[in-house]
Design a protein around this nucleic acid. Structure first.
Length: 280
DNA sequence: TGCCAGGATGATG
DNA sequence: CATCATCATGGC
């Protein structure tokens, strides 16, 4: 990966295959949105930034090298070689097609707490409504970072609120899940940072004990929030997809199932006709 | 309008 | 262990 300092930020020049549109709007995160200039705007670790994509690279506006290393290198997982991964994935025809359809996807390493709450909200829900709910929660309980832009509220802040507060924001029956989850985390009963480095099975079992967290949400939190790229939030679905081709699951797809699944998920959402008889 | 959404829970066979 | 009604809400 190569970066250079520009007059307006840090530019990444040799990850041109990274597509902001594909990465930030493929169902793995819910807070990024393009502004009127086509720049993507979002908040990570309490920092609000805009990112611009042009022909020869991606510029994170208004940051220095220190912030790049501290926040953005990890967030975009720039240390991982996606060219190599996609080459390995292509042993399977369906995944190959998925990678060719959206080669610019990368799986983000989101903040554990935010991923935890947003994927609790995601259950039996659609992406556009999830985005709305998350936005309203941030506006109501986050800190204002810029005009109309709010941080994702802390566990301590959300723990102060009764479930009714979240219900009023449209969370529905998930409202009580959110407030109890916030209490668990704020009281230290659930330590997401610890789970990042805990054995995978232990981390998963712990997440499953949380009220409102089942296998799917647990795997989403593991993959998107805890950096466990071997977990696949839709593993049964993945196996069906691969079996439909009569193919074997390549080893790399087992080791990086979450990443492979992200390519497939986006592909399936755009070409549902290619997945008839596979989706449920 | 009815159906669906990155599902989980609790009750019941 | 498997099935199933139920949950709240908005997009389509």
């Amino acid at each position: 990966m190569k970066t250079e300092k520009t007059h307006d930020g840090i530019k990444i020049t040799d990850i041109s295959k990274l597509s902001l549109a594909q990465t930030l709007d493929c169902g793995q995160c819910f807070r990024w949105k393009p502004d009127e200039n086509g720049n993507w705007c979002g908040v990570v670790k309490g920092v609000y930034r805009k990112i611009r994509q042009d022909e020869d690279g991606i510029t994170i506006l208004g940051i220095d090298e220190d912030e790049f290393e501290k926040i953005w290198f990890d967030y975009f997982d720039f240390g991982r070689d996606y060219d190599s991964l996609k080459a390995d994935f292509s042993a399977n025809e369906m995944i190959k097609n998925a990678c060719e359809f959206s080669p610019g996807i990368r799986v983000l390493r989101q903040e554990p707490w935010e991923a935890f709450i947003t994927f609790i909200i995601s259950q039996n829900n659609n992406i556009s409504r999830i985005k709305g709910i998350v936005e309203r929660i941030c506006t109501a309980f986050g800190e204002e970072l810029a005009e109309g832009v709010y941080s994702f509220p802390t566990a301590e802040r959300l723990a102060q609120e009764p479930a009714e507060s979240f219900a009023k924001l449209g969370c529905g029956y998930r409202a009580e899940y959110i407030s109890s989850a916030a209490k668990e985390v704020s009281e230290g009963e659930l330590d997401l940072e610890y789970l990042m480095n805990a054995p995978l099975g232990e981390a998963r079992e712990r997440l499953l004990k949380v009220h409102g967290v089942g296998p799917k949400v647990a795997d989403c939190v593991l993959l998107y929030g805890l950096g466990r790229v071997e977990r696949c939030p839709a593993d049964v679905w993945m196996k069906r997809v691969i079996a439909a081709l009569g193919g074997e699951m390549p080893q790399c797809v087992t080791d990086y199932a979450g990443i492979a699944q992200q390519f497939l998920f986006h592909y399936a959402r755009n070409f549902p006709e290619k997945f008839v008889g596979i989706n449920k």
